[in-house]
Computed example of a mutant assay.
Amino acid sequence: MLYRVEGIVIRSMDYGEGNKIITLCTESGGKVGVLVRGAKKPKSRHAALVQPFTYGQYVYFRNTGLGTLNAGEIIESYHELREDLVKASYASYACELLDRVLQDEETGAFWFKQLKACLQALKEEKDPVVITSLYEMKILQAAGYGPQLDDCISCGQERPDEQLFVSPRLGGVLCRACKHFDPPAMSVSPKALKLLRLFAQLDLQRLGNISVSEGTRDEIKKIMRAFMDHQLGLNLKSRSFLDQMEKYGI
Protein backbone atom coordinates (compact mmCIF):
# COMPACT_ATOMS: atom_id res chain seq x y z
CA MET A 1 0.00 0.00 0.00
CA LEU A 2 1.21 3.50 -0.82
CA TYR A 3 1.32 6.06 2.00
CA ARG A 4 1.78 9.84 1.82
CA VAL A 5 2.62 11.45 5.17
CA GLU A 6 4.18 14.55 6.67
CA GLY A 7 6.95 13.52 9.02
CA ILE A 8 10.07 14.55 10.90
CA VAL A 9 13.23 12.42 10.80
CA ILE A 10 13.95 11.45 14.40
CA ARG A 11 16.53 8.76 13.59
CA SER A 12 18.72 7.98 10.59
CA MET A 13 21.04 4.98 10.31
CA ASP A 14 23.18 3.38 7.62
CA TYR A 15 21.94 0.18 6.03
CA GLY A 16 24.21 -1.69 3.67
CA GLU A 17 26.64 0.13 1.41
CA GLY A 18 24.47 2.90 0.05
CA ASN A 19 21.15 2.87 1.90
CA LYS A 20 19.63 4.52 4.93
CA ILE A 21 16.81 3.57 7.27
CA ILE A 22 15.00 6.55 8.72
CA THR A 23 12.47 6.68 11.53
CA LEU A 24 9.75 9.25 11.00
CA CYS A 25 7.46 10.81 13.55
CA THR A 26 4.36 11.47 11.46
CA GLU A 27 1.28 13.50 12.17
CA SER A 28 -1.16 10.91 10.87
CA GLY A 29 0.55 7.53 11.28
CA GLY A 30 2.65 7.72 14.43
CA LYS A 31 6.22 6.42 14.21
CA VAL A 32 7.26 4.53 11.08
CA GLY A 33 10.49 3.12 9.66
CA VAL A 34 11.33 3.71 6.00
CA LEU A 35 14.15 2.30 3.87
CA VAL A 36 15.69 4.88 1.55
CA ARG A 37 17.69 3.17 -1.18
CA GLY A 38 20.84 4.88 -2.41
CA ALA A 39 20.54 7.74 0.10
CA LYS A 40 24.28 7.63 0.91
CA LYS A 41 25.35 8.03 -2.70
CA PRO A 42 26.75 11.50 -3.52
CA LYS A 43 24.21 12.26 -6.24
CA SER A 44 21.19 10.72 -4.53
CA ARG A 45 18.03 12.76 -4.92
CA HIS A 46 16.95 11.51 -1.50
CA ALA A 47 20.11 12.48 0.41
CA ALA A 48 18.59 15.61 1.95
CA LEU A 49 15.42 13.78 2.99
CA VAL A 50 17.25 11.49 5.41
CA GLN A 51 19.03 14.18 7.44
CA PRO A 52 18.12 14.34 11.15
CA PHE A 53 15.38 16.84 12.07
CA THR A 54 14.21 17.20 8.44
CA TYR A 55 10.50 17.92 8.16
CA GLY A 56 9.01 16.84 4.87
CA GLN A 57 6.39 14.97 2.91
CA TYR A 58 7.28 11.32 2.39
CA VAL A 59 5.67 8.88 -0.03
CA TYR A 60 6.50 5.25 0.70
CA PHE A 61 5.26 1.78 -0.14
CA ARG A 62 4.65 -0.70 2.63
CA ASN A 63 2.97 -4.05 3.17
CA THR A 64 4.49 -5.17 6.47
CA GLY A 65 7.65 -4.15 8.31
CA LEU A 66 9.71 -1.33 6.84
CA GLY A 67 8.35 0.92 4.18
CA THR A 68 10.37 1.82 1.06
CA LEU A 69 10.60 5.46 0.02
CA ASN A 70 9.20 6.29 -3.41
CA ALA A 71 9.39 10.08 -3.31
CA GLY A 72 9.67 12.98 -0.94
CA GLU A 73 9.75 16.74 -0.62
CA ILE A 74 11.36 18.88 2.08
CA ILE A 75 9.05 21.28 3.88
CA GLU A 76 11.63 22.56 6.41
CA SER A 77 15.20 21.26 6.47
CA TYR A 78 16.15 22.68 9.89
CA HIS A 79 19.73 22.77 8.66
CA GLU A 80 20.42 25.51 11.23
CA LEU A 81 20.06 22.92 13.96
CA ARG A 82 22.56 20.52 12.40
CA GLU A 83 25.12 23.30 11.88
CA ASP A 84 25.24 24.41 15.53
CA LEU A 85 26.59 22.04 18.20
CA VAL A 86 24.36 23.26 21.01
CA LYS A 87 21.18 23.33 18.92
CA ALA A 88 22.00 19.95 17.39
CA SER A 89 22.53 18.44 20.84
CA TYR A 90 19.19 19.64 22.20
CA ALA A 91 17.37 18.69 18.99
CA SER A 92 18.95 15.22 19.11
CA TYR A 93 17.76 14.81 22.69
CA ALA A 94 14.22 15.84 21.74
CA CYS A 95 14.18 13.32 18.89
CA GLU A 96 15.75 10.45 20.83
CA LEU A 97 13.40 10.99 23.76
CA LEU A 98 10.38 10.87 21.48
CA ASP A 99 11.76 7.82 19.66
CA ARG A 100 12.10 5.92 22.94
CA VAL A 101 8.71 6.91 24.37
CA LEU A 102 6.49 6.76 21.27
CA GLN A 103 5.50 3.24 20.26
CA ASP A 104 5.46 2.18 16.61
CA GLU A 105 2.31 3.38 14.87
CA GLU A 106 0.91 4.84 18.07
CA THR A 107 -1.30 7.83 17.27
CA GLY A 108 1.26 10.56 16.82
CA ALA A 109 -0.47 13.90 16.12
CA PHE A 110 0.21 15.41 19.55
CA TRP A 111 3.78 14.10 19.72
CA PHE A 112 4.48 15.33 16.18
CA LYS A 113 3.20 18.84 16.90
CA GLN A 114 5.21 19.14 20.11
CA LEU A 115 8.41 17.97 18.42
CA LYS A 116 7.89 20.33 15.49
CA ALA A 117 7.29 23.22 17.91
CA CYS A 118 10.41 22.27 19.86
CA LEU A 119 12.61 22.23 16.75
CA GLN A 120 11.13 25.52 15.56
CA ALA A 121 11.79 27.17 18.93
CA LEU A 122 15.40 25.96 18.87
CA LYS A 123 15.77 27.33 15.35
CA GLU A 124 14.46 30.70 16.59
CA GLU A 125 17.17 30.68 19.29
CA LYS A 126 14.84 30.61 22.26
CA ASP A 127 16.41 29.40 25.50
CA PRO A 128 17.14 25.68 24.90
CA VAL A 129 16.91 24.82 28.61
CA VAL A 130 13.43 26.37 28.91
CA ILE A 131 12.31 24.78 25.63
CA THR A 132 13.60 21.36 26.66
CA SER A 133 12.01 21.54 30.11
CA LEU A 134 8.63 22.41 28.60
CA TYR A 135 9.05 19.67 26.00
CA GLU A 136 9.86 17.15 28.76
CA MET A 137 6.69 18.19 30.59
CA LYS A 138 4.63 17.53 27.43
CA ILE A 139 6.30 14.14 26.96
CA LEU A 140 5.57 13.15 30.55
CA GLN A 141 1.94 14.22 30.22
CA ALA A 142 1.44 12.42 26.91
CA ALA A 143 3.02 9.26 28.33
CA GLY A 144 0.67 9.35 31.34
CA TYR A 145 3.25 10.53 33.89
CA GLY A 146 2.43 14.22 34.10
CA PRO A 147 3.29 15.55 37.58
CA GLN A 148 0.60 16.76 39.98
CA LEU A 149 1.61 20.31 40.81
CA ASP A 150 -1.50 22.16 42.02
CA ASP A 151 -2.07 20.38 45.32
CA CYS A 152 -0.31 17.91 47.58
CA ILE A 153 -0.07 14.51 45.94
CA SER A 154 -0.50 12.83 49.33
CA CYS A 155 -3.27 14.70 51.17
CA GLY A 156 -4.78 16.56 48.22
CA GLN A 157 -4.82 19.89 50.03
CA GLU A 158 -3.99 23.16 48.33
CA ARG A 159 -1.53 25.16 50.40
CA PRO A 160 -0.87 28.39 48.49
CA ASP A 161 1.00 30.16 51.31
CA GLU A 162 3.12 27.24 52.43
CA GLN A 163 6.51 25.95 51.37
CA LEU A 164 6.00 23.00 49.04
CA PHE A 165 8.38 20.25 48.00
CA VAL A 166 8.73 18.42 44.70
CA SER A 167 8.75 14.63 44.81
CA PRO A 168 9.90 13.19 41.47
CA ARG A 169 9.52 9.70 42.90
CA LEU A 170 5.85 10.20 43.84
CA GLY A 171 5.14 12.38 40.81
CA GLY A 172 4.09 15.70 42.24
CA VAL A 173 4.34 18.22 45.07
CA LEU A 174 4.19 17.50 48.78
CA CYS A 175 3.17 19.85 51.57
CA ARG A 176 5.32 20.22 54.66
CA ALA A 177 3.06 17.88 56.67
CA CYS A 178 3.43 15.12 54.07
CA LYS A 179 7.10 15.49 53.27
CA HIS A 180 7.91 12.50 55.49
CA PHE A 181 6.41 10.27 52.77
CA ASP A 182 9.45 11.15 50.65
CA PRO A 183 12.26 12.67 52.76
CA PRO A 184 14.52 13.33 49.71
CA ALA A 185 11.79 15.52 48.15
CA MET A 186 13.28 18.72 46.73
CA SER A 187 12.40 22.18 47.97
CA VAL A 188 11.09 24.41 45.20
CA SER A 189 11.03 28.19 44.98
CA PRO A 190 7.72 29.98 44.32
CA LYS A 191 9.04 31.22 40.96
CA ALA A 192 10.08 27.76 39.81
CA LEU A 193 6.80 26.20 40.94
CA LYS A 194 4.81 28.89 39.14
CA LEU A 195 6.78 28.18 35.97
CA LEU A 196 6.31 24.43 36.31
CA ARG A 197 2.56 24.92 36.66
CA LEU A 198 2.63 27.13 33.56
CA PHE A 199 4.49 24.40 31.66
CA ALA A 200 1.85 21.88 32.68
CA GLN A 201 -0.88 24.05 31.12
CA LEU A 202 0.99 25.54 28.15
CA ASP A 203 1.16 23.93 24.73
CA LEU A 204 4.67 24.18 23.29
CA GLN A 205 3.15 25.49 20.05
CA ARG A 206 1.99 28.57 21.97
CA LEU A 207 5.34 29.40 23.54
CA GLY A 208 6.21 33.04 23.01
CA ASN A 209 9.23 34.94 24.23
CA ILE A 210 9.81 33.98 27.83
CA SER A 211 12.48 35.42 30.10
CA VAL A 212 13.67 33.25 32.98
CA SER A 213 16.45 34.10 35.42
CA GLU A 214 19.49 31.84 35.40
CA GLY A 215 18.77 30.59 38.92
CA THR A 216 15.15 29.68 38.15
CA ARG A 217 16.16 28.11 34.84
CA ASP A 218 18.74 25.90 36.55
CA GLU A 219 16.21 24.92 39.22
CA ILE A 220 13.61 23.98 36.60
CA LYS A 221 16.19 21.98 34.69
CA LYS A 222 17.18 20.04 37.81
CA ILE A 223 13.57 19.30 38.76
CA MET A 224 12.53 18.18 35.29
CA ARG A 225 15.62 15.99 35.00
CA ALA A 226 14.64 14.30 38.27
CA PHE A 227 11.07 13.74 37.03
CA MET A 228 12.35 12.21 33.79
CA ASP A 229 14.77 9.92 35.63
CA HIS A 230 12.23 8.70 38.16
CA GLN A 231 9.16 8.44 35.95
CA LEU A 232 10.66 7.21 32.66
CA GLY A 233 14.13 6.00 33.63
CA LEU A 234 15.54 6.20 30.10
CA ASN A 235 19.26 6.00 29.42
CA LEU A 236 19.71 8.29 26.42
CA LYS A 237 23.00 8.90 24.61
CA SER A 238 21.93 12.44 23.73
CA ARG A 239 21.20 13.20 27.39
CA SER A 240 24.66 11.99 28.37
CA PHE A 241 26.18 14.23 25.71
CA LEU A 242 24.26 17.23 27.06
CA ASP A 243 25.59 16.43 30.52
CA GLN A 244 29.14 16.37 29.14
CA MET A 245 28.58 19.72 27.44
CA GLU A 246 27.37 21.21 30.71
CA LYS A 247 30.32 19.72 32.59
CA TYR A 248 32.82 21.37 30.25
CA GLY A 249 30.88 24.63 30.01
CA ILE A 250 29.93 24.38 26.35
Rank of each mutant, 00 (worst) to 15 (best):
F61R: 13
C152R: 00
L69I: 01
P52C: 01
L98V: 12
R100F: 09
R100C: 12
I74V: 09
L149M: 04
L69V: 03
K87P: 03
L140W: 10
L102V: 11
S77E: 10
E136G: 05
E136P: 07
P128F: 08
L102H: 06
D99Y: 08
C118Q: 04
I131Y: 03
Q148N: 08
Y58H: 03
Y135R: 02
K138E: 11
A117N: 11
K31P: 05
K116I: 14
S89P: 04
V86E: 10
L98K: 06
D84V: 03
A91K: 05
E105R: 13
L98N: 07
K126D: 10
S44F: 01
L140Q: 07
Q51A: 08
L97W: 05
V59D: 09
F53C: 05
Y90W: 05
K126L: 13
Q57L: 14
C95P: 00
I75S: 13
I153Q: 04
S154E: 15
Q148D: 09
D127N: 13
H46A: 15
K87M: 05
E124L: 07
I139M: 01
P42H: 02
C118F: 06
L49D: 05
I75P: 09
V36D: 04
L102D: 01
E136F: 08
Q103G: 15
E124P: 04
E80S: 14
R62I: 07
Y55C: 13
V34G: 01
K87I: 03
G108L: 01
G30Q: 04
Q148H: 12
L69N: 01
V34Q: 02
E80N: 14
F53E: 09
G33V: 06
T68G: 11
T54I: 08
T107K: 14
G65P: 11
Y55R: 12
L134A: 02
C152F: 00
M137C: 08
V50C: 11
V32N: 04
V59Y: 10
R37S: 13
A142F: 11
